[in-house]
Nucleic acid binder design. Structure first.
Lengths: 118, 118
DNA sequence: ATTATATATGAACAACCGTTCATATATAAC
DNA sequence: GTTATATATGAACGGTTGTTCATATATAAT
């Protein structure tokens, strides 16, 4: 039986490695995807999102519900806005935030299912 | 028409704020969920996961496909393992990694759909 | 037992991230 | 105009994260 060197010349799965290398999407795609998931990788942002799943809210309401400063909430909303997770509309002095599209809740739910079932 | 103070006594949506406060899950749940999403919030880990979607692989193969050091790959696999995202089995000198459960791919796909469609 | 290979792990360091504090802008009421 | 309210933003700070380098462990072959 032929000897298999793993990390030198002959890999454990040489033909597989070659195939995987060729079919792999570009780094930018993984970068973009990781930036999307980063939006969900913070408990404060998850809380904000879960509130917005129920209805549109202003900074003020969110800060009150989460017992956080307006500034902290506003910064997080700004991050979510820049990443196209949420949108906003102004009504007088208030700015109301809501989800930008329905994928967001799907991602959230997929994660939630995982932690509930394990 | 009654004046509405937002951040002082009467909120913009007073009854909503109260309801949201009461029905909100515990902080630990958001913490756990954010830690799950954190696993997906790095391009290297996403690459590793997308490789493992196709088949089980050893450190060596992954390092080769991604052109990374074995150490860097091993550290990421360690993180994924500790967070129950992947499992492993030993076969001689090699250790083969694979997905721990099928939810992982669902979360990944939900994210991927989002970035493709926008 | 010695050597080689595959993987793991600890320490260190730079880069990134989330909050806070202070300040600025925008709208509304007067 | 001025004042008050709602939100945004810039700077700074501490904490976390991902990689690298060096070293350790585990299995296999000789």
């Amino acid at each position: 039986m032929k000897k298999k060197l793993c990390c030198d010349v002959v890999e454990v799965h040489p033909q597989v490695v070659t195939k995987l290398k060729e079919t792999m999407p570009a780094h930018e795609q993984y970068q973009t995807l990781s930036e999307l998931f980063k939006m969900f990788a913070d408990p404060t942002r998850l809380k904000i999102l879960s509130l917005l799943f129920q209805q549109e809210l202003c900074v003020c309401d969110i800060a009150e519900v989460l017992s956080m400063t307006h500034s902290a909430v506003s910064h997080q909303l700004s991050v979510l806005r820049q990443n196209r997770i949420i949108k906003y509309r102004r009504e007088g002095k208030n700015i109301f935030y809501s989800l930008d599209d329905e994928h967001i809740q799907m991602i959230y739910n997929a994660g939630m299912e995982h932690i509930i079932e394990s």
